[in-house]
């Protein structure tokens, strides 16, 4: 068991290394640079900036230097956010993104899973059709449409709901209600997906022989569902939720801009158009690392849910 985790962490580090290398060389391959401007910088100034950020070094030296920085958790200075480092940007922005993201993830699980279970148990009844209709809407409507509709139709008319994110809420109402819009927009797709996933995997499990056996043995329906069916049905859901959580916790470009949340979502998109090399790669590393951690957590969760899954042991051991 212990060996297994050591092995996984080593794999994870190797994956990160590949991610860094590919991102590093890809971003340097695209035309334009961090100092590309509609009004060009005087060459003298560009030379000084290139020297300051070591962009005049050979690419391979920059790469080695960057790897050296990453090892010491130094992601370098941002080219665009003057005077700030990528570490600063993550430190300042991530709490906001994580805040909204965490609430969204909780909502997705707390609403999506029960909704899927109910739909499966009441298959083809009204509640099933209603829930799956909503789920289809949630998957098909993009988050920026949900966010815009929320602002123009709901927040504009209900004064207790802030139209945009309130940074220093003066009252409890703002502190709570400011989450409604961003969480709906952020969780719409995944919530729908999770409920559909739960439903289909639940339906499949309910047709298994051991459920019939359990029922034949006279176990209460409640016990059959929660003790026997649900655990197995949740495995695909857990597989999906791990990576999803990594994506949601790191914020969304669109949702954060529409609701004016000072998170890190915008850096994932803006850094590329700004050719803000250090931010591009820093954000990629951050996301990749979070993703890997989530996948590891999913593995751990498997072991808890299904005792048949023995990590690190080959079949027949």
């Amino acid at each position: 068991m212990k060996n297994y985790y050591v092995q996984r962490v080593l794999y994870a580090l190797f994956t990160l290394y590949i991610v860094i290398t590919v991102t590093f060389f890809m971003m340097h391959a695209i035309p334009g640079g961090p100092f590309t401007r509609e009004r060009h910088l005087p060459p003298e100034i560009e030379a000084i900036l290139n020297e300051k950020y070591h962009l005049d070094d050979p690419l391979f030296k920059q790469y080695i230097d960057y790897l050296g920085g990453v090892v010491t958790f130094d992601l370098g200075p941002s080219f665009k956010e003057l005077g700030l480092t990528v570490n600063d940007l993550i430190r300042e922005g991530f709490p906001s993104s994580m805040n909204v993201g965490l609430v969204s993830v909780i909502m997705i699980i707390a609403i999506g899973v029960p909704l899927g279970i109910i739909s499966a148990l009441k298959q083809n009844k009204f509640i099933d059709h209603a829930a799956m209709f909503l789920a289809t809407l949630g998957v098909t409507i993009p988050s920026f449409v949900i966010a815009t509709l929320f602002i123009t139709l709901i927040a504009a008319n209900f004064t207790f709901i802030p139209i945009s994110w309130v940074n220093d809420p003066q009252n409890v109402g703002d502190a709570i209600f400011r989450y409604i819009g961003p969480v709906i927009a952020l969780s719409g797709y995944s919530l729908s997906f999770v409920s559909r996933l739960t439903r289909s995997s639940m339906l499949e499990v309910l047709r298994q022989d051991y459920i019939r056996t359990a029922r034949a043995n006279g176990l209460s329906e409640r016990r059959v569902i929660f003790k026997h069916a649900l655990k197995n049905a949740l495995i695909p859901v857990v597989t999906y939720v791990g990576p999803m959580a990594a994506a949601i916790l790191t914020g969304s470009f669109v949702v954060e801009r529409i609701f004016v949340i000072p998170g890190i979502g915008r850096y994932f998109v803006e850094s590329v158009s700004n050719r803000d090399y250090t931010v591009i790669i820093g954000m990629t590393i951050f996301y990749a690392a979070l993703y890997i951690v989530m996948v590891l957590l999913v593995d751990v969760a498997y072991a808890f849910i299904d005792p048949r899954i023995r990590l690190g042991k080959k079949m027949g051991d």
């Binding site: 815009t148 602002i151 123009t152 927040a155 504009a156 004064t159 139209i163 945009s164 801009r257 529409i258 609701f259 004016v260």
Partner: peptide
Amino acid sequence: GYFIDIATTAFVKYNNGE
């Protein structure tokens, strides 16, 4: 001063008197 770069969000806040 606010940093709202989505015109719709700002417009709704404007109409709401914010």
